[in-house]
Simulated assay, not measured.
Amino acid sequence: MQNLENGPVLVGVTGEQPESVPQRGVSFAKAFGRDVVFVWVDTTQYTSGFMSDGTVAFTTFDPDPSADHDANTEWLEERARAAADSEGVAWTTRVGAGQPSAVLGAIADEIGASMIVVGTREPGFIAGLQEFLGGSVAAHLAHTQSRPVVVVPLLPADKGGRVPWEPEA
């Protein structure tokens, strides 16, 4: 087993989640004297191979080859800069494609991440359906990783309040 104590903090980010997830990842990186790697996983595509220059080739799940599938990831750089620069933490970004927990785990292994930071899912029907069909990214990571997985609550329930898995009254 590789020594994970000196690796960067990997932070899984999406364009829709609150700033608390990247900020918490940066806080851990700063506290432990580590760099941070922000990773976004495009779930509409999958990794299909590698180009001769080492870049990753992606293929879309969409059978329409005429559709434009170039993901604009400028937002990822902007979020990384906003979260890390003010704290003086060195950062990089990575983009993967496919099933989020598998991609985050593979990148964590590749970079020797000391921990993975992800957020909980947003409440709502679509998010609940996605989690039911694909499972929780955090749960998958927690059961398959040899490194700590930190789950940042996006909308924590009030004490005594209903949690997302409980039926509504």
Rank of each mutant, 00 (worst) to 15 (best):
Ser86Lys: 15
Glu78Lys: 12
Asp53His: 05
Thr47Phe: 00
Asp85Ile: 04
Gly49Lys: 09
Asp85Arg: 08
Ser48Gly: 15
Arg81Gly: 01
Asn72Gly: 02
Thr55His: 12
Ala80Leu: 09
Asp35Lys: 13
His69Asp: 08
Ser66Gly: 02
His69Thr: 15
Val89Met: 11
Asn72Ser: 10
Tyr46Ile: 03
Ser52Pro: 05
Ala84Gly: 05
Asp42Glu: 12
Arg34Lys: 15
Val56Arg: 13
Asp62Pro: 09
Phe50His: 10
Arg79Ser: 12
Ser66His: 09
Phe61Glu: 06
Arg79Asp: 03
Asp70Thr: 14
Thr59Ile: 01
Pro63Leu: 08
Val36Ala: 15
Thr55Pro: 00
Gly54Arg: 07
Arg34Pro: 02
Asp64Arg: 13
Trp75Cys: 02
Tyr46Ser: 12
Phe50Leu: 12
Val41Glu: 11
Gly88Cys: 06
Thr43Gln: 11
Asp64Pro: 03
Trp40Lys: 04
Glu78Val: 05
Ser52Arg: 07
Thr60His: 10
Gly88Pro: 04
Asp53Glu: 10
Ala80Pro: 08
Glu77Met: 06
Phe58Asn: 01
Thr73Gln: 01
Trp40Gln: 10
Thr47Pro: 00
Thr73Phe: 07
Val89Thr: 08
Ala71Asn: 04
Phe61Val: 13
Trp75His: 02
Val89His: 03
Pro65Tyr: 05
Asp68Cys: 01
Val37Thr: 14
Ser86Glu: 14
Glu87Trp: 04
Ser86Arg: 14
Leu76Val: 09
Asp68Gly: 01
Pro63Ile: 12
His69Asn: 14
Asp64Ala: 11
Asp53Met: 07
Glu77Ile: 06
Val37Trp: 01
Ser66Tyr: 06
Val36Tyr: 06
Asp64Ser: 10
Ala80Met: 09
Glu77Cys: 00
Gln45Gly: 02
Gly49Thr: 05
Thr43Glu: 15
Val39His: 02
Ser52Gly: 12
Ser52Trp: 02
Phe50Val: 14
Val56Met: 15
Arg79Lys: 13
Val56Gly: 02
Asn72Ile: 04
Val37Glu: 12
Asp62Val: 07
Thr60Ile: 00
Val39Cys: 14
Trp40Ala: 14
Ser66Pro: 00
Ser86Val: 15
Glu77Ala: 14
Val37His: 03
Ser52Ala: 15
Thr73Leu: 13
Thr47Tyr: 00
Met51Leu: 14
Gln45Asn: 11
Leu76Asn: 02
Gly33Met: 04
Ala83Ser: 14
Trp75Thr: 01
Asp85Trp: 00
Ala82Val: 06
Ala71Met: 13
Ser52Met: 10
Pro63Met: 06
Tyr46Pro: 00
Asp85Val: 13
Pro65Ile: 13
Val36Cys: 10
Asn72His: 11
Glu77Gln: 13
Asp62Lys: 01
Glu78Ala: 14
Asp42Ser: 11
Asp62Leu: 11
Asp68Phe: 09
Val36Leu: 07
Ala83Pro: 03
Met51Lys: 13
Phe50Arg: 11
Pro63Tyr: 08
Thr60Val: 05
Phe61Ala: 11
Pro65Met: 08
Ala71Tyr: 04
Asp35Thr: 11
Trp75Leu: 03
Val41Cys: 11
Val36Gly: 07
Val37Gly: 04
Thr44Lys: 07
Asp64His: 08
Phe58Lys: 05
Gln45Phe: 00
Thr44Pro: 00
Tyr46Leu: 11
Val56Leu: 11
Ser52Ile: 06
Ala82Pro: 00
Thr59Glu: 15
Val39Asn: 02
Ala84Glu: 05
Val39Tyr: 02
Val41Ala: 05
Gly33Asp: 07
Glu87Thr: 04
Asp42Met: 07
Glu78His: 05
